[in-house]
Design a binder for these strands. Sequence first.
DNA 1: AGTAATTTGTTCGTATGTATA
DNA 2: ATATACATACGAACAAATTAC
Lengths: 244, 244
Amino acid sequence: MGQRVNGTDDGISRWRRVADGIREWVRDGSITDQLPPEVELAARFGVNRHTVRRAIAALTAEGLLRAERGRGTFLNAVAPRIIYPVGERARFSESMVQQSLEPRGRLIKAERVAAKSSVAALLDCRPGTPLHRLERLAVVEGMPLSRSTSYFVAERFPDIISAYAETGSVTEALRRHGVTDYRRRETRITATRISAGDAEYLNCTSDSIVLVSNAIDVDLEGKPVQAIRTRFLADRMELVFAAS
Amino acid sequence: MGQRVNGTDDGISRWRRVADGIREWVRDGSITDQLPPEVELAARFGVNRHTVRRAIAALTAEGLLRAERGRGTFLNAVAPRIIYPVGERARFSESMVQQSLEPRGRLIKAERVAAKSSVAALLDCRPGTPLHRLERLAVVEGMPLSRSTSYFVAERFPDIISAYAETGSVTEALRRHGVTDYRRRETRITATRISAGDAEYLNCTSDSIVLVSNAIDVDLEGKPVQAIRTRFLADRMELVFAAS
DNA sequence: AGTAATTTGTTCGTATGTATA
DNA sequence: ATATACATACGAACAAATTAC
C-alpha cells in the first residue's frame, strides 16, 4: 500500500528533513561522537530505515558522518589541516619537520617505463625515452597523507630507485646523481574525487577528495629532473603559495 | 522471502558489478551520451531496479553520470579545464581573455560588516574594523565558474562597492581609490565539497567539488588591500603556480 | 573460545510522487 | 492527456562485521 511522501507536505522530502535533523543535533551538541542506530533513528523520526539511510548517505557525502559496519555511525572529527608551503624550494619532508610532524615515505612501486608524450614534454625529452617511475606514499604522524608518482630520465638517474629506497628522500637520491640542488619550476593544481587505487593506499573511503598537484622540478641550469604528480587527501592538507 | 546477495558469490556486491559494467560501457564507447532507462538496465543485469539505482548513485558521486528526472541518465561530458595562472600578478579576467575566453563578473551581494579576528589578521587591522564584503560570481563563456567573497577596509576603500558595480573589475575599483597596482602576497589552497549556497549560484549538483583559494593582495608598499576567498568548480579549473 | 545480540550493508518487492517528452 | 523516466518511501529478509556475554 502506498503512503504520503510528506507528512506535512511542504515540498521537502523526508530524508532531507531527517538529514537536517541530524545536522541540527550535531550543531547544538546533542551528538558529539556516535549516532543512535538506524532503527532507533527511524523510530524517532517516524520514517522507514531506508529513509534514515538515505539521509545518512547524504551526510556522509558531505563529510559529516562516517558509518562502520557492525559498529555504528560516527561524527567525522575534523583535524586541522597540515600546511605545505610550495615555493621555489618545495621540500615536503623538511616542511613537515618544521611543523613538528614526523613524515615517513614509503616506496610502493618502482618501474622502468617509456615516456608518454605528455610526460616527455614535461621532462623535455623525446617520447619513448626510458624513465624510472616511482610510486610513493607519504605518511605523516602515522596517517597516510598523499600518494605521488614521479618520473626521472633513466639515463641521467640510473640508480634513483635504489638511492631513494636507501635514503627515503628524493633530495638525497638526486644529490647522489650530482644534483646538488633543485627548484620548483611549476605547480599545477586541480582537485577531484579519489581513484580506487589511491583510496586503498591512503586508507580512506572512496568518496574522499584529493588535491592533485602536477609539478616540475628543475636543476640549477633549469633542466627538468623530476616530473611529479601528487594526490593529497584534501581534508588533511593545505597548500600555501607565498610571494618570495 | 530472502535471496542470495551474489549470483556467483565472489564477495563483490551486485551494485558494484553493475557500476563496473556501466563504467566498462563508457570506456569502450558503447555508451556515448545517454544510459538506457533504469528498468531496462535492471532487466539487462538481472537485478532489481534499486540495485541499478545504487550503482548509478555511486557513478554519479564519481562524477561520471548525471540523472535528470523525467528525461534520463546521461554521461557527464568532461570539458577541458580552464587555466588560471596565479603568480605575483593574479588577474583573473585578464587571464581569461588571454585564453580567448569571455569572463563576466556579477555582484551578488555587498555588505558592510565588522572584521572577525580571522579576517582582521589577514588585512592587518583590528577585529571589529568596518569592512566591505563583496560576494561575486565569475561566469566564463556563459557558465558559472567560481564564487568569491572579498573584504576591503571600509575607511580606505569607501566607494569600492559602487566602483566595482560600475566597472565590473576589482583592479579598476582599486585604481579609483589610488591603488595603481597590487600583487598577490599569499595564496592558500584547499579543496572541499561544495556548500549548499555556492551550489545554488554555481548551478551545479550538491556533490560537486570546489577548489578553495584564500588569498591576500597587497599594494606596492606591501599593505593588504584585499582578502579574498574564492571557490572554483574543481572540474572546470586548474590553478597554475609558476616560478617567475 | 564461542555464541548471541547488535548494527550497518545489500537486495528484492511494491507503491506512489514528480518532471519531461 | 498519456506514457516515460527518475525520485521517494515503506516493508521484509538476509549478509557481514563487530561487540557483549
